[in-house]
Measured scan of single mutants.
Amino acid sequence: QIFVKTLTGKTITLEVEPSDTIENVKAKIQDKEGIPPDQQRLIFAGKQLEDGRTLSDYNIQKESTLHLVL
């Protein structure tokens, strides 16, 4: 699982696999929060994550925290 922290300070927990794409993660966030993926920007280690890449591409491991910017 990974954590996604929103600007409001809320933390969302997501069940993911390293092979999941960023697009996939955004879809999971939409399921939980109702935020359309095209409004979501995910930041990890100061980098904006691209939809077509996977979590493992960015070396995002379990218990990692991503930041969600709208």
Rank of each mutant, 00 (worst) to 15 (best):
R41S: 13
I2R: 01
I22G: 02
F44C: 04
E63A: 09
K10C: 13
D51E: 09
T11K: 08
V16E: 00
T21W: 05
R41G: 07
G9K: 03
K62W: 09
T65R: 04
E23Y: 13
G46H: 06
D38Y: 12
P37W: 11
Q61M: 12
I60R: 00
Q30L: 10
N59K: 08
D57A: 06
E15C: 15
I35K: 03
T8H: 12
Q48K: 09
T8E: 14
V16S: 04
H67A: 07
E33T: 13
L14S: 00
G34C: 07
T54C: 08
L55T: 03
L49F: 02
D38L: 08
L42K: 00
E50P: 03
I35T: 08
L68Q: 02
Q61P: 14
E50I: 08
T13D: 04
S64P: 03
R41V: 14
G9P: 02
I29T: 01
K62F: 12
I35D: 03
V25C: 05
G9Q: 04
L7V: 13
G46A: 04
V16F: 13
P36T: 06
I43N: 06
I2W: 02
K47W: 09
P18N: 07
V4M: 02
S64K: 03
V69I: 14
G34I: 02
I22T: 04
L70E: 10
E23T: 09
L14Y: 02
Q48T: 13
Q40T: 05
L70W: 09
D31N: 09
E50S: 08
E33I: 14
Q39N: 08
F3M: 05
D57C: 04
I12Y: 06
Q40H: 04
E17D: 13
T13Q: 08
Q30S: 12
R53F: 15
L14I: 15
N59C: 10
L49N: 00
P18I: 12
I12S: 02
T6H: 06
K47E: 15
G9Y: 04
P37E: 09
L66I: 13
E33K: 04
L55K: 00
T21V: 04
D57L: 03
L14R: 00
G9D: 05
D57P: 00
E23L: 14
E63D: 15
K47Q: 15
Y58M: 04
K10H: 10
T11L: 14
R41N: 15
G46S: 05
L55C: 06
T13P: 06
H67L: 13
